[in-house]
Structure formats: C-alpha cells, structure tokens
Design a protein around this nucleic acid. Structure first.
Length: 243
DNA sequence: TCATTAACTGAGG
DNA sequence: CCTCAGTTAATGA
C-alpha cells in the first residue's frame, strides 16, 4: 500500500456525497492511521468490547454480525473499502455487535481522539460523517425488509444490487461485473439461510439467466430481470445529490 | 476448504 | 400437490 493511498477510497466516497475542499482532503490525509493486515474470518472488534479507535477498510470486505445463543450468526451489513463500519463507536463505546473480516483485509485504525480533533477543525467533515451514519441506518432498515419479507432469490438479488451501487462509488464496477467475494456460508449468513440453500438459490439465479455468482464475482446476465427480482429502489442510499 | 448435489424431511399454502 | 428450506451426507474442485 503506497503512501497516501490509504484513505483513497474514503475520499472517493465522500466526494461522491458532496464536494470536498482541498483543505478537507488534506485533513483526511493527515489523519494518523495505523495499518494492520488481517486474514479472512478474523474478529476486528467484538460485542461487549470497548472501542477506542475506528476502523477504515483499505482493502477487502468486512461484515457486521451478531450471533444468537444457539450459535446462529446473522450478517447485518457488508462493508467495502473506503467505509468506516464502526463509526458509531465514537459515541457508543461498548460494541453491541461484532465487526469481522470476510476476506483478507488491510484495515486502517484511527483513534477516537484524532477523529474528534478532525471534527472540530473541519466541521463540514463532521457533517459528512454524520450523513454517512444516517445512510448506514437506512441500509439497516432495507436489510430488515430484505431478510424479513423477500423470498430468498430476491434477497440475494437485492444484496447484490446494493453492493454494486456502493462499489460504483469507489470505481470498482467493471461493466456488468463486480466483486462479491463471499463464501456461500457467508452468503447464507447474510440472507438468513443455510449454506446449502444459498447454493441452491445461486444456482437458480444462474439457470434463470439473471446473474452468475462465481469465484467471488457477480456477472449480471439480465439487468432488467435482476432489478425486477430485487425490487430495488436505490432511494435509501441517498446517492443522487439533486433530489 | 469450499462448492455442489442428492435424498429425505417437514411446514405451510 | 407444490414450493421453500433445513439436515445430512457424499463427492468434486
């Protein structure tokens, strides 16, 4: 990871939300960030822990999840480079869920104090992070509808389309194809189904000629039918600035 | 280790 | 009777 490229995806995302001044970009690049490497399926912060730093994803995919007393794990959200999944720990110090890696990851850690200082010096950035947190909450609402009300194929389709829209912000969609490097076990955890059933659903979408999930990549075969199946309405992502 | 598939089971419409 | 989904187990990449 070369020099000041650590917050590159973060800057891209914030830029997509609204303009960033040179000063604000410099302030982000000046953040003291401690970089650590993680393997796949590693705990970053766990429920009950007291967080003193926030985690910026530099490379790889992470997820927030909770595990029931019976040991069933539900993925609550998937996170991509440029995102700070545990921004809330700045105000809610004790974690109420787990943050873990899905794939091998490069993670950047910023102490809460450094973020507070940034907020004081760049109030516009504080607004942007606040906005980010609200969109995060909107994604949770959509996730609940997804897992609670959609049939499994539509659930998978919806997760795929949302992921694609977010990957677009950091320039990581290539034509009709994008990364979704989850194992079928992890797909099952996201959709609330077993890995075996996740396999059936993936197979069905492939056979129906809608979408192919293969070796951590999604290939969209039929955009129209994918959107229709997902019942996707991107309003909740609040990406279009002029509305 | 992960993905795939079959066979069986039961819930529910 | 049909669809959806969990369990178990075998097998392939």
């Amino acid at each position: 990871m070369s020099g000041d490229e650590i917050p590159a995806a973060l800057v891209k995302r914030l830029r997509a939300a609204s303009g960033l001044s040179e000063q604000e970009i410099m302030a982000i690049h000046a953040l003291p960030i401690l970089v650590r490497e993680y393997g796949a399926e590693r705990a970053v912060v766990s429920e009950g822990q007291r967080a003193v730093e926030c985690c910026l994803i530099v490379r790889g995919f992470c997820a927030r999840s909770k595990t029931t007393s019976e040991g069933r794990r539900q993925i609550l959200s998937i996170h991509i480079p440029g995102e700070i999944p545990d921004l809330m720990s700045l105000h809610l110090h004790v974690m109420d869920h787990d943050l873990r890696t899905l794939t091998p990851c490069t993670l950047g850690f910023v102490h809460h104090e450094a973020l507070r200082l940034l907020y004081r010096r760049q109030p516009n950035l504080a607004d942007l992070f606040w906005r980010d947190t609200l969109i995060d909450a909107a994604m949770f609402r959509e996730w609940i509808v997804n897992v609670g009300q959609r049939p499994a194929p539509a659930r998978l389709a919806h997760v795929m389309v949302e992921l694609r829209e977010r990957l677009k912000l950091i320039g990581r969609v290539e034509g009709s194809s994008f990364e979704m490097p989850l194992t079928q076990e992890q797909v099952g955890e996201a959709l609330g189904i077993t890995a075996v059933h996740a396999n059936r659903v993936i197979k069905q979408l492939r056979q129906d000629g809608i979408v192919d999930l293969h070796r951590g990549r999604v290939d969209v075969l039929d955009e129209t039918r994918l959107l229709e199946l997902a019942g996707f309405d991107g309003r909740y992502l609040h990406q279009s600035p002029a509305l």
